[in-house]
């Protein structure tokens, strides 16, 4: 199975597929340091950070993250890290 076919299959399944060269990011929260101030939720340009009922953030759609690191540099509590994410590439990883 080629990679292209695999991407096509993922698209059919409704998953977002990034083109080659596009970077993927993941946002990691240290919730024990978070004080639920809401700055990351309010200012995320893609609005992908949403708050739970006590105001702690979580990511809704990780593939949409553009890696601007606004949340990381504006978090007063050093609780957010944005890092690159490398998707699984091997055929055996495909579910």
């Amino acid at each position: 199975m080629t990679l292209k076919k695999h991407e096509g299959q993922r698209e059919e399944l409704g998953e977002k597929v990034k083109k080659q060269g596009e970077k993927l990011f993941e946002v990691v929260f240290s919730l024990d340091w978070c004080k639920s101030c809401g700055i990351c939720i309010a200012f995320c340009p893609k609005k992908i950070i949403i708050g739970d009922k006590v105001g702690k953030p979580r990511i809704n759609d990780s593939d949409s993250c553009i890696g601007c690191r606004f949340c990381e540099i504006h978090c007063p509590d050093f609780a957010i890290t944005v890092q690159k994410r490398f998707p699984k590439r091997r055929q055996s990883d495909v579910p």
Partner: peptide, 17 residues
């Protein structure tokens, strides 16, 4: 940690910068 400042206090942002 977490530090003593109130939630959302700008001091933490200045410390990071």
């Amino acid at each position: 940690f977490p530090h003593v400042w109130c939630p959302g206090c700008g001091n933490g942002i200045v410390m990071g910068a």
